[in-house]
Design a binder for these strands. Structure first.
Lengths: 346, 346
DNA sequence: GCCGTCTATGGAAGCGCTTCCACAATTTCG
DNA sequence: CGAAATTGTGGAAGCGCTTCCATAGACGGC
């Protein structure tokens, strides 16, 4: 039986189910059943198929399988704007880690879908339209792409990381309570006696940034403090520096600073040091994220922890549930409470 | 013609090529030709098909297409060990950026293949075996996985980022000349008059680390200096700290330190500051990478720049060439020369 | 001992696409 | 002006798989 040891029975190409069936002495149908879970397969047939699979080194052709099952066993992680920021951001790294951790258990692959800035949202949508993947996880999306609505229209199972601007009642999403988090952060400064508290907010077209700003406003209002000292950055260290500089110029008497990301806070700390302000004695600073950066600044940052990996895991699990769900399940949201982490800067 | 405006002609599901052909009034064969490049298609037929495609919102089913073309229009980026290090490493981020930049021009998707540490290399290989992707780009691989040989056996087009340990004569790879880079870095210290130069090397199971260590050895030998002060880290900041501490304990009189990565160098700088050593006056330090970290240390690091993105681009282009090549092209290597970047630390 | 039930099994029908091949229509050229 | 080449087209085969359905046994229960 020379053909048992020779992997390729049908001339060229890798072995097919047909080859397996022939070698195992069963029909294609039985071989297929044996390979997928083995419902209605006798022990005899099962082991014959198993042996054949092993001896041939058979691996099912995913395209053929996908053609009939309408499943691809892969999900997309959609990053609408993969500018340099996204990749360097620990947020992204953490997300990827969380996603892969969940995916590793199932046999599902991850397709990274990076829409370049500009008009390529159309391309992304086209890709998602033809069911190249079973579902999509959208991270870091911006205001004007209306991605949530488009995806909802598509009927493709999807979950957003962070509340989408529009269509948030039509898609599922996982988010932290950014408003509560920033409120809490601000209250730390209030409690410590700061009365002139400024904020460096994130980009205005991201819900997380807007929510944090709202949280700061709420806490300030509640404490009866003025909310004039606001400056926007884009979550990068450089933008934090610029914002801090602008803020300190306009409001040299600030004694508290609420920054919407640790990276920006790191930039701000550098500027404050330059200006000779002691932190927290002259001005107390709180950041946001706690993804490693906060521990490396001088002084270490008091900040609000976002459990990114946990969020990513939850989001992925949610997505997989929706992929598996037969009917259309209703949109769901998971809101994770933030945690304050106290360190030296406030 | 109600069905022209109704996307779904055949009951449920998305429109198929059949629908397009029917609407355009041509055969499936002609419709297919018109959609793919339009060889041997009359202008009349072409425009009829184009119109039909648009009105139906037709998108080809990738699984069906892939089944017959044996192409998936996607490549895998294989990360053999996606420990936390990989994601946080700017090297990885840069690589991803380079890859996506090249891929964006063609209509090729990126599948992230993260083998978990442990025995899951088998799973990765299985995935790659069944031609789920057209090619593989392997980054950050370690000694014992023998991935290069396995992939060569598979016959799947692949390119390695960094010279693989074994089988490097059987696969293509893109690398920087790590030996020359570290030699040059060491020579900076020699030229500056250092005579007791230690090194913090990378993990011994990575070729890049081994090559850099060799470079250091070469330069030291050439200068007639002793090569006893060697300590290994794993490219992380923490390991750099530990290594520096160990090194300074064993050789308190060092006046030069060659570190195999900027991240480790950052850790080392912190230790040196703690120990009250002035850099570069008491001890000069050079790093390796120049991917952002080097500019943020105090003092800023003199280092060897690795053009990661360029490397990733080259590797990706090389891979795509090999995917397109009909026959098996011979293994190729691209070696990129490193560049020394002088800053304050040496 | 016969009938209904249940379990395995294989035949066959597709999934949606590309492409080979044959053929008709047109053009080119000796 | 007829033969040869060229071009556009559709029929049909098939990529490798799953799954419906019919059927053949095995098995109790009356």
């Amino acid at each position: 039986m020379a053909w048992v040891t020779t992997p390729r029975t049908t001339g060229s190409g890798s072995p097919t189910l047909d080859d397996v069936a022939r070698v195992a002495g069963v029909s294609r149908a039985t071989a297929s059943r044996a390979i997928n879970g083995g419902q209605r397969v006798s022990a005899r047939a099962q082991s014959a198929v198993d042996t054949a699979v092993r001896s041939l080194g058979y691996v099912p052709n995913p395209a053929a399988r996908s053609l009939v099952t309408r499943r691809t066993d892969s999900i997309a992680v959609v990053v609408p704007e993969p500018d340099d920021r996204v990749f360097s951001d620990p947020f992204f790294a953490g997300t990827l880690r969380g996603v892969t951790r969940v995916l590793a258990d199932r046999d599902i692959q991850l397709v990274l879908l990076l829409a370049r800035p500009g008009a390529s949202t159309a391309r992304t949508l086209r890709y998602l339209t033809n069911r190249h993947v079973d579902g999509a996880l959208v991270v870091s999306h911006h205001r004007d792409d209306r991605l949530a609505e488009h995806l909802a229209d598509l009927g493709l199972p999807c979950v957003f990381g962070g509340r989408p601007w529009t269509g948030h009642d039509r898609v599922a999403y996982v988010d932290v309570d950014n408003t509560a988090g920033e409120r809490e952060a601000t209250e730390v400064l209030v409690a410590r006696g700061c009365t002139r508290i400024g904020t460096i907010a994130g980009p205005a077209d991201m819900t997380a940034a807007a929510d944090r700003l709202a949280g700061w406003r709420q806490a300030m209002a509640q404490a009866g403090l003025p909310t004039g000292a606001v400056e926007h950055g884009d979550f990068t260290e450089a933008s934090g520096e610029a914002a801090a500089r602008a803020l300190m110029e306009r409001h040299p008497d600030l004694d508290g600073l609420v920054v919407a990301s640790d990276l920006m806070a790191a930039g701000a700390l550098r500027v404050l040091a330059e200006l000779g302000r002691r932190v927290p004695e002259d001005i107390a600073v709180v950041g946001y994220d706690d993804l490693g950066v906060a521990e490396r600044t001088t002084p270490q940052l008091t900040t609000v922890r976002q459990p990114v990996e946990e969020m990513a895991e939850r989001a992925t699990r949610l997505l997989l549930e929706r992929v598996d769900a037969v009917g259309a399940s209703r949109p769901m949201r998971v809101i994770i409470p933030p945690t304050l982490v106290r360190r030296a800067s406030a």
